[in-house]
Amino acid sequence: MTTPSQHRPAPPRARARRHRALAGAALLALTALLAGACADPEPPSLFADGRVAVGVKNDQPGTGQETSYKFAGFDITVARQVLAGVHAEPDFSSVPSQDRSTVLTHHQKDLVIATYSITDERMKAVDFVGPYATTSQGVMIREDEAGTIRSRQDLKHKRVCTWEGTTSGKELDKPAYDDIEDYPQQDASLCIKDLEEGRADAVSTDQMILYGFTQEKDSHLKVVPGILFGSSNEYGIAMAKGHRADCRRLRDALRAYITSTAWEQDFANSLPAIKEQEPHWQTDFKPSTESIDRLSCRDHPAA
């Protein structure tokens, strides 16, 4: 039942007030819509559906190796540990060294965790979370050559294999190493084959990778402890730019992982050869949290 007053038309002043209120609300809604349309669209989180496409190496025992469709190595362990910190799980697939940047910029992978060194140049193209490990560039030889190649001088006029898309090859191209006959191969496995079959006298890349090869069953290869090239490489987890919120979440997860005892355990499990042969492995290969803060989620390293 309605009262007579409900049927009575509203007075003109009340109607005008209502119209003004409606117009105001419409204007507000329109402004909000326009603001939303003009603002930079927030990209969806890489971890939103709990699965992350991770590019890894498949031919580097100890760091990233695929055997019977199963990936293993320190990179793989780091991926699992850090992604667990952001409640996501990795879907691994292999990526060649020379494609590590393009699979990210072309959105074919969400992350690349593939012994990928952080450089100023790469930081302009992709974002890094890291370092999760630090290593120097070294040299690996056949065990039967251990008596003849013991120092940098012994590499004069020797054929040293490196592979494309790595900082190691670029380092040996510097004039300081003109007396070394370095040559590039397409990937690590071809270099190892060349070394084993005598076409190369040595293979040079990061010691973490080299020690991984020496761990292989029936390996007759050896890392020469006294030979180091260039400055330390810092391995980072790479991702396409434009995901800084995800990057910072991953950085925090990595920082928590590095400061826990799990890092040492995982490193020693994946690369027992380093634990056996490098007495200071915990200080030489483990990065500091300060370096994580200075290199993660930036376009340029912070000093």
Binding site: T119, D120, A303
Partner: peptide, 17 residues
Amino acid sequence: AIDDHDPSGPTCLHRTS
């Protein structure tokens, strides 16, 4: 301004003072 001499090599900036 301190920069890596070779920006394509491993960065040293965070270790430099």
